[in-house]
Computed example of a mutant assay.
Amino acid sequence: MLDTKINLLVIDDDDINIFIIKKIVEKTGFDIDMVSKSNGQQAIDYLNEVVSTNRPIPHLILIDINMPVMNGWEFVEAYQSLGIAQRVDLYILSSSVYENDIEKTKSYTAVKGFISKPLSIERLTELIKELEH
């Protein structure tokens, strides 16, 4: 059971999606600290800073695929090389309807699954409950 604040990292370059996810987070009723980054490189820089300053690692990371600078797949590869030992649940959160993107998700051991946009309150609640096990 998670008895602390849930740390959520959302990586998405679309401000509207970030706004929607913030509203969904508020409606879950969970104590969630959400941080958003607009591309994979910003997220890697953020995680490196978190690790080096001994701040809490995100429990859950939601990753868009198509972003400038560093896309979602490049982020996952860079993330895996960080060597973070703590359990972090990574999910691709995308509007992609391409079967190869959904299949590619399965090729990364660090990624737990593919979620089609838009994220729902029910799906986020499920993800949080999975963190508790």
Rank of each mutant, 00 (worst) to 15 (best):
L90S: 04
L9I: 00
F19Y: 12
I63T: 05
L9M: 09
V10N: 12
D15G: 10
N100R: 15
E122A: 14
D101T: 03
S120Q: 09
I20A: 15
G29R: 08
N71M: 00
V51N: 11
D3M: 15
S96G: 11
N48L: 06
I61V: 11
I18N: 07
H133D: 08
I16W: 13
P56V: 03
T4R: 15
I128D: 02
A110R: 15
E99C: 03
I6T: 05
E103R: 13
T4E: 09
D45R: 12
Q86R: 15
N48E: 14
T125F: 13
K106M: 06
I6S: 07
L119I: 13
V25S: 01
N39I: 02
D15Q: 14
I115E: 03
T105G: 10
Q80W: 01
F114S: 07
I115S: 10
T109Y: 11
I16Q: 12
F114C: 07
F30K: 13
I121A: 04
T109N: 13
S94V: 02
D15K: 15
L82C: 06
N66M: 09
N17M: 13
I84P: 02
D3N: 15
E122C: 05
D33Y: 06
D89T: 04
E49W: 03
S95P: 07
Y91R: 04
D12M: 10
D101Q: 01
F75E: 03
S38H: 15
K22V: 08
